[in-house]
């Protein structure tokens, strides 16, 4: 679903030290992979820290994790756990996942319509709405009513937002603004445009400052 995300520029081929010794200031620059890149899977990794409600079918005492205590788990009693644990338990068929409140066809339809109507970015229900939808629908679609409709709706919302993002990036560059306000954007959305936009801006900055 997050197909835009993969369209990152391929890292440049690493030049070897000895072949490039001559002039140029960059002959030692063998590590050409951009550090400022973040892999989409790392954004997903962050999203997995979000809490989600599950109904376990086993019982277990409190677990004292480094990041906080979890449990106790009782069969049939809903409990909040991080998504990474929920998915693991689900895969081992030890729980049922209760989708977050916003993952609901009516609410998402409302959101989609609002998103299409407004020129600005509207607030999203979760800072990781895209990643969570993908994770939960891929691994627990049997626990989520109307999974296919939700998938389409979230994709619609995502597409609308990305189109807005591209549009505003375009006007940001063509009007040579010094800063832009990007409220309500999520990390994944920023990530789709980060490498491209920042590189562009850096290049243009270099070109312009050389002209003067």
């Amino acid at each position: 679903m997050v197909s835009f995300v993969t369209a990152r520029p391929a890292p440049q081929a690493a030049g070897t030290v000895c072949s490039a010794v001559p002039v140029g200031r960059k002959f030692l620059n063998t590590h050409t992979k951009k550090q400022t890149d973040m892999d989409p899977s790392e954004v997903e990794f962050l999203a997995e820290k979000e809490m989600v409600k599950i109904i376990p079918n086993f019982s277990l005492d409190k677990v004292f994790l480094i990041g906080g205590d979890l449990g106790p788990f009782n069969p049939g009693l809903p409990i909040d756990v991080p998504v990474w644990l929920a998915l693991n338990l689900k895969q081992r068929q030890k729980c049922r996942i209760i989708p977050p409140e916003w993952m609901d066809v009516e609410k998402l339809e409302e959101m989609r319509d609002l998103e299409r109507k407004e020129d600005m970015f509207t607030p999203v229900p979760s800072p990781y709405y895209m990643e969570l939808t993908k994770l939960l629908l891929n691994h627990a679609s049997d626990n989520i009513p109307k999974a296919d409709e939700i998938r389409t709706l979230v994709k619609d919302i995502w597409d609308t937002r990305i189109a807005k993002l591209r549009l505003s990036a375009d006007s940001f560059i063509s009007q040579q603004e010094a800063y832009a306000k990007l409220d309500n954007l999520t990390l994944m959305e920023i990530n789709t445009i980060r490498a491209f936009l920042l590189d562009t801006l850096n290049c243009m900055y270099k070109l312009r400052s050389n002209v003067q």
């Binding site: 040579q176 010094a178 954007l185 400052s209």
Partner: peptide, 24 residues
């Protein structure tokens, strides 16, 4: 203070928590 690259003019902005401005 945000300085546009080209002009001499300077821009003063106020930012609130949660905003994501993009700046040099």
């Amino acid at each position: 203070l945000v300085e546009p690259e080209t002009e001499d003019q300077r821009l003063l902005i106020t930012v609130d928590p949660g905003d994501i401005p993009e700046i040099k």
